[in-house]
Simulated scan of single mutants.
Amino acid sequence: MSVTDKPTQTVSVGRKQRRKEIKQEVSVDVEVDDGESRLQDGTHMNVSCNVPAPTPCKMPVVEGVVGSQRVSVLRDTGCSGVVVKRSLVTEDQMTGEVRTCTLADGSSLKVPTATVVVDTPYYVGPVVAWCMETPVYDLILGNIDGARAPDEPDSSWNQRMADIAVVETRAQRKLKERPYRTLKVPAALKEVQPSDIETAQQEDDSLVKIRDMVTSDEVKERRDGGKSRFFKHRGLIYREYQSPAVANGRTFK
Rank of each mutant, 00 (worst) to 15 (best):
P60F: 03
T8R: 02
I210S: 08
T169I: 02
Y122Q: 04
P56S: 08
P54S: 13
T182I: 07
G35H: 06
R15T: 10
K232Q: 13
V30H: 04
S2T: 15
R148D: 02
V219E: 02
S80L: 11
K6H: 11
L189A: 10
D92A: 05
F231T: 06
A147N: 04
P194G: 05
T95H: 06
K110D: 12
W157G: 09
G42K: 03
G64M: 04
V117E: 08
A171I: 13
R86A: 07
V166A: 12
D196V: 09
Q24P: 04
P153H: 13
V83E: 00
V166D: 13
T215F: 03
R15S: 06
P135S: 03
L139Q: 01
S195H: 07
M213P: 01
V82D: 01
Q17M: 07
V192Y: 14
S156Q: 10
V13S: 12
R222H: 02
L175G: 10
V208G: 12
A114L: 02
I197M: 12
D76T: 06
Y123G: 01
S156E: 12
N46L: 14
N50S: 12
T77K: 01
Q9Y: 07
R234S: 11
I237E: 08
V214I: 00
G42C: 04
L141R: 00
T10N: 09
K58R: 14
K232I: 05
S2H: 15
K190C: 08
D29P: 01
R15K: 09
D145G: 00
W130T: 03
S87W: 06
I197K: 09
C131Q: 05
S68L: 13
C131N: 04
A53E: 15
D41C: 09
P150K: 15
S87E: 05
S228K: 05
H233R: 14
D163N: 14
A171M: 14
D217G: 08
E191K: 11
S68W: 10
R170A: 15
R234W: 11
S27Y: 13
S216E: 07
K85N: 07
D217F: 05
V124F: 00
E25A: 12
K16I: 11
E221Q: 13
V246M: 09
Q69N: 08
V61P: 04
V13W: 13
S2V: 15
